[in-house]
């Protein structure tokens, strides 16, 4: 492992983010704000969704405006099984992941036939379709959502998601796993094809890469990763509702990725921490926090391109300068 990276501003910032996540269950009580542990649990769950969006949007250039739908599908997999009394994680989780993947396959297969503006609008439209579907099914709670009586049961002694710390570190470990998977994928041959397709799809076709298949694969992997976020969210909140796939959440996910630094591995985590802490603080000040958040979002887009990671990267010496 190369420890040099830790000396750069980005390295320090990224290490801080991870340390903050690890030690929050102890930091929060120490500063007398116990609820911050919960806030960080939620942050990491949202971060997983943002990491998966970053995978297709940041590295693959696929701007999905309906990504939250996979959070909903993962969440409802837990909720629906639990409402029928099936609590085993070995049924809930594989089905949740498979369903997210299957929906991603169908949505991706149709949406990826188009590009640009069409892609943005179609992913949004499909997400709304699933949203309205979940609203219309009275058996599973319609608008009101489903309260989950028991969390997923792994059947392992001393491993119980009802324990707050166990839940927290389950989320943490899975989030780190998603970060590692993303890094591995992005640097693999597969990831190179995806990134090349983002910068010039036609050239990739010309040199003989059928990018459609590669992009669709990335879309399905991202869908499943996002489904994981939903599985965790349902367990963490003991509740699922159509709101978790409403289009504004998809918009927030895009913002989180851009805020943190699109196309960087750790960007989504930083974005999630900043966004959710900010909304926590603002909503404590005023109920109408969107009044501040809306213009803030516009300012970030207009003046802070590259997000936090991009800003910190400016302080780094370029590789040429080093040698």
């Amino acid at each position: 492992m190369n420890l040099e990276i830790l000396k750069t501003p980005r390295g320090i910032y990224n290490s801080l983010l991870i340390l903050l996540c690890i030690f929050m269950p102890w930091i929060a009580p120490a500063i007398g704000q116990d609820f911050f542990t919960d806030v960080f649990g939620r942050i990491m769950i949202v971060a997983i969704a943002a990491i998966s969006l970053n995978l297709i949007m940041g590295f693959g250039g696929m701007i999905s405006f309906g990504h939250a739908v996979f959070v909903g599908i993962g969440g409802y997999a837990v909720g629906i099984f639990a409402s029928h009394g099936i609590e085993s994680a070995y049924i809930q989780w594989p089905v949740g992941l498979l369903m997210s993947g299957l929906f991603a396959l169908i949505i991706g297969a149709i949406s990826l036939r188009t590009r640009g503006v069409y892609f943005i609008m179609i992913t949004l439209a499909f997400a709304q379709m699933i949203y309205f579907l979940s609203v219309s099914i009275e058996k599973y709670g319609s608008d009101d959502g489903l309260t989950i009586d028991a969390r997923s049961d792994f059947g392992i002694p001393f491993y119980d998601l009802n324990d707050a710390l166990t839940m927290y570190f389950t989320v943490f470990v899975l989030m780190v796993a998603c970060l590692l998977i993303t890094r591995k994928m992005v640097n693999s041959r597969f990831g190179r094809v995806i990134r090349a397709a983002k910068s010039n799809d036609e050239r990739m076709h010309t040199i003989g890469y059928p990018t459609y298949g590669y992009k669709l694969t990335a879309f399905v992997i991202a869908g499943m990763m996002c489904g994981l976020s939903g599985l965790l969210s349902a367990n963490f909140e003991d509740f699922v509702s159509p709101d978790m796939m409403f289009w504004t959440f998809s918009g927030e996910l895009i913002f989180i990725v851009v805020l943190g630094g699109m196309g960087t591995i750790m960007g989504p985590l930083g974005g999630a921490i900043i966004f959710l802490l900010l909304s926590e603080v603002l909503s404590n000040i005023t109920n109408s926090w969107h009044l501040i958040f809306g213009p803030f979002l516009i300012l970030v887009v207009l003046f802070a391109r590259g997000g936090v990671e991009g800003f910190l990267a400016k302080f780094e010496k370029s590789p040429e300068a080093k040698s």
Binding site: M57, F65, G116, I120, V258, I298, V301, L302
Partner: peptide, 11 residues
């Protein structure tokens, strides 16, 4: 397009 989506989302 991404910047446009976000900025108008803010609006």
């Amino acid at each position: 397009h991404l910047d446009q989506v976000l900025a108008t989302f803010g609006l």
